[in-house]
């Protein structure tokens, strides 16, 4: 077919030259990217910083930020606001990024903790929809919240030394990790190993030792959602005494699992967010709380 056919179909519309068209497209593309950058302050900052037009905030390794604040962010926030994931386009894994904020702008207002979105979100009552970290993850300790508030009140600086924060809550003592004797560990694990392997085949990625050096178990069935119910939970009976942490959030377990939960004599943490607790389960949860087990559930 010759180009003549195209001319016949041309309804008298004025044509652009290819070069003109490409120029328009290039212009529009740049404008769109620029508009995105303006709407996302963090993107604009990142571009300016890369081009050397903006310096990252000053930081010292001896600062209160480095010693007390960054570790809280790393432990509790980084999994969603870090290198892997940037929920709400917010990153808290560096001071520069934290000060820039996310999709909805800054979350830290230096000198004004009350006006800082970050503080508002971590200070919400437990169970609130907007609480950070979200209620199915491990919560901040009240001291953590205080540390962050004090830091922001003093200007959210990367250099102010520890000594400038004499009223800050004392840090929790560092845990020292003891060397394990492999023979002792193997002996401790021996009674659990067999049933554990059978369970791991039946429920992949649901149960495992809590650490390489531990004979205690951790059970997390929340990824299985409603396909995990009382009958499935009952299959873990042979190892209940070794389980120290359980997450059944969002699963279909209910009243019928009350006895199995109470049989976990070494339980330390139990998560049941999104699980409907009937009267006997609710009573069991209350008694577990009294025994010092940390229970996270929708029921008070």
């Amino acid at each position: 077919m010759s180009d003549a056919g195209v001319h016949a179909a041309d309804l008298g519309r004025r044509r652009l030259s290819a070069r003109r068209y490409i120029s328009w497209v290039a212009l529009l593309t740049v404008a769109t990217v620029a508009a995105f950058a303006m709407l996302r302050p963090s993107l604009a900052h990142a571009i300016r910083e890369t081009l050397g037009l903006e310096r990252p905030p000053l930081q010292s390794p001896q600062s209160f930020y480095a010693a007390r604040v960054a570790p809280i962010f790393d432990q509790h926030c980084r999994s969603c606001h870090g290198p892997g994931r940037q929920k709400a386009k917010l990153r808290l894994d560096s001071l520069g990024a934290a000060l820039r904020g996310g999709k909805h702008g800054a979350v830290i207002a230096p000198g004004n903790p009350g006006g800082s979105g970050l503080v508002q979100r971590i200070a919400l009552p437990a169970g609130s929809e907007r609480l950070m970290p979200p209620s199915s993850l491990s919560p901040l300790a009240p001291d953590d919240v205080t540390v962050i508030k004090l830091w922001i009140a003093a200007g959210a600086s990367g250099v102010q030394p520890l000594s400038a924060f004499s009223t800050a809550p004392k840090p929790v003592a560092q845990v020292t990790i003891l060397a394990v004797d492999p023979k002792v560990l193997a002996a401790e694990r021996a009674p659990v190993d067999g049933p554990l392997q059978a369970l791991q085949r039946r429920f992949p990625y649901v149960i495992d030792y809590e650490a390489r050096s531990s004979a205690r178990l951790e059970l997390n069935a929340s990824r299985l959602g409603r396909s995990f119910g009382d009958r499935e939970f009952a299959a873990f009976a042979p190892v209940v005494a070794s389980i120290v942490r359980v997450d059944l959030s969002g699963t279909a377990v209910g009243e019928a699992s009350t006895q199995a939960l109470l049989a976990m004599t070494n339980l330390r943490t139990l998560r049941l967010v999104g699980v409907h607790a009937g009267p006997s389960l609710a009573a069991a949860l209350a008694s577990m709380r009294e025994r010092g087990i940390r229970v996270y559930a929708d029921t008070p």
Binding site: S79, C80, G84, R85, K87, P134, S136, L137, P204, Y205, S222, R223, L224, G225, S227, S249, G250, V273, G274
Partner: peptide
């Protein structure tokens, strides 16, 4: 990372899902 899992996420490890 919180409470929502794609319908096949439970069939692989949490690290791979991430």
């Amino acid at each position: 990372g919180i409470r929502f899992f794609g319908p096949l996420a439970a069939r692989i490890s949490a690290a791979l899902s991430d």
